[in-house]
Design a binder for these strands. Structure first.
Lengths: 142, 142
DNA sequence: TCACAGTTTAGAATCATTCTAATCCCGTTG
DNA sequence: CAACGGGATTAGAATGATTCTAAACTGTGA
């Protein structure tokens, strides 16, 4: 206990990632980035991540978690997934892919980008261009 | 002014639709159903529909609009569309189809069901079955 | 080390939506 | 046709996620 960032090695990777993204590596951002990017393909909500970081004994306000999630998203480190009217999810996988969504448990599962093919998307109405195509496979317990 | 439901002919169609759905045709529900199903392929939010019915000089509370939208959805008369974290949309087209969504203006546009083909959806994890596949084509002004 | 612009934060504020409990009214019964 | 009973409506409070505000704090370049 009482280990510093340097001692745990937490800082290095996360700090570099933040600097690359043009974000000042503050204690809170480094802490959150460490949690988010330690493992791959994570799906978190603000509340969710706040509990996690708090549970790890680190003091970060919920407002900062919201701010940080949005900043990471703008910086291209995260992607926001809209599948539930009740809350927003953030996905550490920013590449081309889709999702299974189990609403009853708020669970998201990645589907690799090459797996699903969407054909026949019509040209959008005049004056509009396609930003991206989202596919959500809604599932339920059998 | 001062026309009754019978005189305007509003009641008949909407009333029948409500009865079929097993919903008691109250003044508010008939009024809302008339607005919703007068034209095809409408996309409304609760606030949205409340303004419309209020603007038409009919007094319906926002709570009732919410209740009614959910009841209509459960009865299969409407379908809820989740594309925006900020609010819920309800679609009078309950058939198989997808959407263009212009977030900046909260505008939804139907894409007929046969138009888009989604191939390669993997089998869901054990214990889960597919409920439905939603495709949202997010567009922006050019 | 200093200063300052960018950050964090507690708490208030906001927004959509839901809940509550009282009142109302549709449809049936007598 | 009036009474009744249970579903429906409603105003207003409550909720829950998210955002805002204004003050306190902290990386970072000089």
């Amino acid at each position: 206990m009482g280990k510093t960032l340097r001692e745990t090695g937490k800082g290095t990777a996360a700090t570099a990632k933040l600097r690359h993204a043009g974000l000042r590596p503050t204690r809170q951002r480094v802490e959150l980035a460490s949690l988010l990017f330690k493992s791959c393909d994570r799906h978190v909500t603000a509340e969710n991540l706040h509990d996690e970081v708090t549970g790890a004994g680190v003091k970060v306000s919920l407002a900062t978690v919201y701010n940080t999630l949005h900043q990471f998203t703008e910086a291209g480190l995260l992607r926001q997934v809209i599948v539930d009217a009740a809350r927003s999810y953030f996905d550490t996988n920013t590449g081309d892919h889709q999702h299974f969504f189990l609403e009853s448990e708020g669970m998201l599962i990645d589907i690799p980008g090459e797996t699903i093919a969407v054909a026949g998307v019509p040209a959008p109405p005049a004056g509009l261009s396609i930003d991206r195509v989202d596919v959500v496979v809604r599932v339920k317990r059998t």
